[in-house]
Design a protein around this nucleic acid. Sequence first.
DNA 1: GTCAATTATTTCAAGCTTGAAGTTTTATAA
DNA 2: TTATAAAACTTCAAGCTTGAAATAATTGAC
Lengths: 154, 154
Amino acid sequence: MVAGPTSTGPGKERLRLWIRLLRASRTIEAELRERLKKEFDTTLPRFDVMAALYRVPEGMLMSDLSRFLLVSNGNVTGIVDRLVSEGLVTRARRNGDRRTSMVRLTEEGSKAFAKIAAVHEGWVGELLGGVSEEEAKRLTGMLKSFRSNWEGRE
Amino acid sequence: MVAGPTSTGPGKERLRLWIRLLRASRTIEAELRERLKKEFDTTLPRFDVMAALYRVPEGMLMSDLSRFLLVSNGNVTGIVDRLVSEGLVTRARRNGDRRTSMVRLTEEGSKAFAKIAAVHEGWVGELLGGVSEEEAKRLTGMLKSFRSNWEGRE
DNA sequence: GTCAATTATTTCAAGCTTGAAGTTTTATAA
DNA sequence: TTATAAAACTTCAAGCTTGAAATAATTGAC
């Protein structure tokens, strides 16, 4: 998937684009993963979950988390398990519906995330430094549009 | 990493861009992964390795593969192991340097890949259907440029 | 009210991924 | 030569990931 097109013809440009897109995000992701590990002894998936929770002090359900993060239910279970054992989030059984549990950042988790997020934003600024803010806006717009066609078609 | 910016200010647009980029590639990747599994009973990493080898009939070294695919050495070992056991690639010990082994697609592997790649290209065309060929070219150019700044700095 | 379907979540096996440590082979320097 | 370092690869533990199967609780149809 990271290799070039094996043929020519229509659709070739889109395939090229896809390969670029994938290489770019993999490269950046790898760099961010490494820095998160080295500087904060954490991982990208944990950072993702904390970022999602940080926006919603009242917490999120497991299924909300997995929908939002585009990963499977079982996946979230494991990541949250680890965050709980680190004291960064809590799972609170609700009175209303006993199947669900509300996941929230702890005080400690919230503080830890704020610290990491600030540095993280700087890293992204650095790694995407070749794109001007103006270009970034345009690119963002393009990326926004091309998903709507097929995504969530059923 | 898939959540929105937690602050405002400079660099915010780049962070937005990064989040879009990541969400886009994850969504497309998930869809392709699912289709590869359902239609061809294979995985993305295997497809990647085969795509890399397809371009070079004389074969690649393990370390070339890992460099090209942007993944670790140990990772490639496992994937190639599985492809070998499926009869799709071979590992040939070389006479010159007995540390290395040349990895090649088998006849069967080559045929299998060609079949999958054709369908795969169609999928990408479909999933990126919202982008015109012209737009795709421009986006590709932008993505090409923004990596050069920091990538491979040592 | 009862039972079937649905929903929320967890568990599990298989595979992917990294980074560190280990093995074998080759290259280099004295 | 003969250490010593470097290179190519494999192995391993820990964690991420999915999809399928299992559990438990709720909802809906009757």
